[in-house]
Design a protein around this nucleic acid. Structure first.
Length: 109
DNA sequence: CCACTGACGTCGA
DNA sequence: GTCGACGCCAGTG
């Protein structure tokens, strides 16, 4: 079922995030045409826990800070997953963000 | 029913 | 260039 819900749209983009890459809420929001609704993107991620194909751990804020990490099951689970993909994380902050940053609008275009 | 908060980001001064 | 306030939509109190 293809639901045009804003949330479904977010999940769809999140699934498209390639391995070893990360994106930001605003990037997804902007791609959906709601740049100012970045908060909604994160809110949608609240339901991502019900979706296995939604690597929310690959979605971070514009600063590359693992803001949502606090919402994950464990404490360092998010960082653990990111490091497992080769992403360097330091103090909840992604290093080389500009290198691993995946822009849906630019990549998917 | 009304008000505030929330995985953020952009606009304004 | 830096700091502050507002906006988005939905859920919860």
């Amino acid at each position: 079922m293809k639901e045009d819900n804003f949330f479904e749209r977010v999940y769809e983009v999140a699934r498209l995030i390639p391995y070893g890459r990360v994106t930001s809420y605003g990037a997804i929001a902007k791609y959906l045409g709601a740049a100012r609704s970045a908060r909604m993107v994160g809110w949608a991620m609240n339901g991502s826990g019900k979706y296995e194909d939604v690597p929310a751990h690959r979605v971070v804020n514009r600063k590359g800070l693992l803001t949502g990490k606090h919402h994950f099951q464990g404490t360092n689970l998010m960082q653990q997953l990111l490091e497992s993909e080769g992403i360097v994380v330091k103090e909840n902050q992604i290093q080389d963000l500009e290198k691993i940053f995946w822009d849906p609008m630019k990549e998917l275009s």
